[in-house]
Design a binder for these strands. Structure first.
Lengths: 401, 401
DNA sequence: CCACTTTCTTCGACTACCGAATCAAGTCGG
DNA sequence: CCGACTTGATTCGGTAGTCGAAGAAAGTGG
């Protein structure tokens, strides 16, 4: 079962937002929710009642008085229903379960060999999701978790599944469209494949889109326009416009990996052109370039270690990558004029790259566009992808009651 | 009196949309409106009644039967209220009045010397708007029109005024922010100045934004995401995202004039940088470049004539300009993934430029992004700016009843 | 014990919309 | 020329979602 369309509302005081406010601790009582949402107390009461009836919210006794009647505290039930999320990367996948407010219940990182093909890779990841969903939740777990299903607590029922793919995805159908670096995946219908194994709503999207959604919901939910760059093995971006994920006409919005940048010599890209951003500034490109310079390096982790150690070849490449990203981002910022640009992915922790990107951005953008622009690192980078995936799923599950 | 915010609704079957459907001839009866809007017949009846009471719509007898009862035809009253619009350019201004459905009632083009400063220029344009509003409308007028105020017919009352400025405008306040090529205008508060002379709601925006809005409403209203390039003396763009004008955080969205492009030699831009799009591909840049090659040319019109005549220097420059625009636009298309890119402004009629732009776009964009992308010329280019201005104003005037 | 605050619910009222029924006014086949 | 059928528009409850006022519930502080 696939879901075809984006959430229509969920913005102004929708059930999802109330849930999120409670989950994040921004609101503890109905009165808090009323103040935050701007809705009248009566409306909030109604909505909260509905949420409680749906089992999405519960009352947990009274709070401390602030000079008047004590608030009846609200909380998101633990051990309740969860959604599953998979953030697939080139070499690793982050798999987790999240409660219906979007908080991570359990998560673990698994090594992945993407070239084994979709059936193999997705098959084992789906099994992992099922195992996590069946095991009791440990809300603060972040690292690997035993998936042994013990008998205590009610294992939350799986309500939906969100999957992020490191390549172009037609969000409407859940199909992968000519990805680079994913041999054997072209045209594969992820949603259909998963629907055959798990009987819950499934949403498939590009990994950068999910990172954008996750980061926006957790860190920038008050900002209308935001751009998130994911710089890892590949390079992608996700766009938030008017508070909502912007997918564009074909669902390919944010795919800046094959924008041309100036580079000398211009390296050949897997797409057949030369000088693509991805061929200059992606993690894969850095590995290749270093090897061509005779440096022995195993993978992106090795490159980052070299940069941290101050290796000049690696650092120079990182700076070039930063400038290349900044160059493209400058056009994006001028054109789109976001409130924030945030960079995530494994290269986001690479200081020289970040510094060069910043410099290029400030140099090449309109002062008007950068004067209040935030340029940040994506926070909680590790779980931001699965968080976005979960939010997307929950928006549907909750909206559909 | 200034208006601070964008229209919140006006999208799904709002009063404005009904009005527009009638105005454009897409709908003639209530039944048509019901089919188009998806609203129930009863709702449409209600709305239409309200519009009629407001004087925004009228019944004009019965139409032809299609096998049943004859429809009661609806029309936008002529000779009724109008809004004024000014589309200011570097050397000319288009001034007009439009009825409340957004159709041009009267319009004329006036020569302008922008360097005379805002008081002088705006003063005479405001006088012209007043004269047009006071004179009886000739609905089909497109060229210069006598502004003599004859006594026949009820001169429509002016309900609002929209102004497009060829430079960066803070839409919220109506203030101009460090424009190139507008000496004496920096920081000028257009809205406040006009408010002192005309007592109607006033909206000020960038000319490219208005072109975008006008073109989208008239030609692409069914498309969600669109980008419009205005290539005249300067270069700007306007963005439609999810059917609405996207202004961005600072209101500077779409300002791609100072994005860097590859050019050899990279001409200096008025902003102090070299290789800005505006310094390579704008009309002003073409004039400058031709003169530097020793060609005697008076202005942009002269350049266009040279290109039409097949002058090789001029044509080469036009091609370079087209490539430069295409280069930036490629990033924009990859990033934003619009359904349509349309080019307007005086350079839009320049075939070599358009051809180069198209070629660059197809070469440098993701196939996924271009496979269904429309690349067009902006239609009805002359009046599209004032149309956009009027729409913006009407959205407020009608929404506010 | 009383005045006041804070929290939450109850109860009309209002708005916007829809659907069904109905009225209005045609066409068209016999 | 007369019904049967179509199409167009209105009337009239009914429903959903929201608000505001009032008030009940449960505190604090003097």
């Amino acid at each position: 079962m696939t879901i075809d369309d984006a959430p229509r509302e969920a913005l102004r005081g929708g059930p999802r937002e109330l849930l999120r406010w409670v989950a994040t601790g921004a609101a503890v009582s109905r009165a808090d929710l009323s103040r935050l949402s701007g809705l009248s107390p009566s409306t909030v009461s109604q909505r909260v009642e509905a949420l409680i009836n749906q089992g999405l919210l519960e009352e947990t006794g009274a709070g401390r008085s602030r000079g008047g009647r004590r608030p009846r505290q609200l909380a998101v039930p633990t051990g309740g229903a969860v959604v599953g999320a998979i953030d697939l990367g080139a070499h690793h996948a982050r798999v987790g379960t999240l409660d219906l407010s979007g908080r991570v219940v359990q998560a673990r990182t698994l090594p992945v060999r993407i070239e084994e093909g979709p059936e193999q890779v997705l098959g084992s990841l789906l099994a992992e999701v099922a195992a996590l969903a069946a095991s009791p939740g440990d809300p603060t777990s972040a690292g690997p978790v035993s998936s042994a299903s013990t008998a205590d607590g009610d294992p939350g029922a799986l309500r939906g599944l969100g999957i992020g793919i490191p390549g172009p995805v037609q969000h409407a159908t859940g199909r992968i469209v000519s990805p680079s670096r994913m041999p054997g995946w072209n045209g594969f219908d992820v949603a259909a494949f998963c629907a055959g194994r798990v009987d819950v709503p499934i949403i498939v999207d590009n990994d950068a889109n999910l990172m954008a959604l996750g980061a926006h919901r957790t860190a920038h939910s008050e900002l209308d326009h935001a751009v998130y760059i994911k710089a890892g093995t590949g390079i992608g971006s996700g766009v938030i416009s008017s508070g909502r994920l912007h997918r564009g006409a074909q669902g390919s919005a944010g795919d800046i990996s094959h924008c041309r940048v100036v580079a000398d010599p211009a390296p050949l890209c897997s797409c057949g052109n030369a000088g693509c951003l991805e061929a200059v500034a992606s993690g894969a490109a850095l590995v290749t370039a270093l090897r061509e310079q005779g440096v022995t390096v195993s993978d992106l982790t090795g490159v980052i270690r070299l940069i941290d150690d101050g290796d000049r070849h690696a650092t120079a490449l990182a700076r070039q990558a930063g400038r290349a990203i900044g160059e493209i981002l400058a056009v994006v910022v001028n054109f789109f004029n976001p409130q924030v640009v945030a960079i995530g992915g494994r290269l986001a922790d690479c200081e020289p790259l970040l510094a060069s990107m910043r410099a290029t951005l400030y140099e090449r953008c309109l002062p008007l566009a950068t004067q209040t622009l935030l340029i940040e690192r994506v926070a909680a980078s590790q779980d931001v992808g699965i968080t976005g995936a979960a939010h997307l799923v929950i928006d549907h599950v909750v909206a559909a009651n």
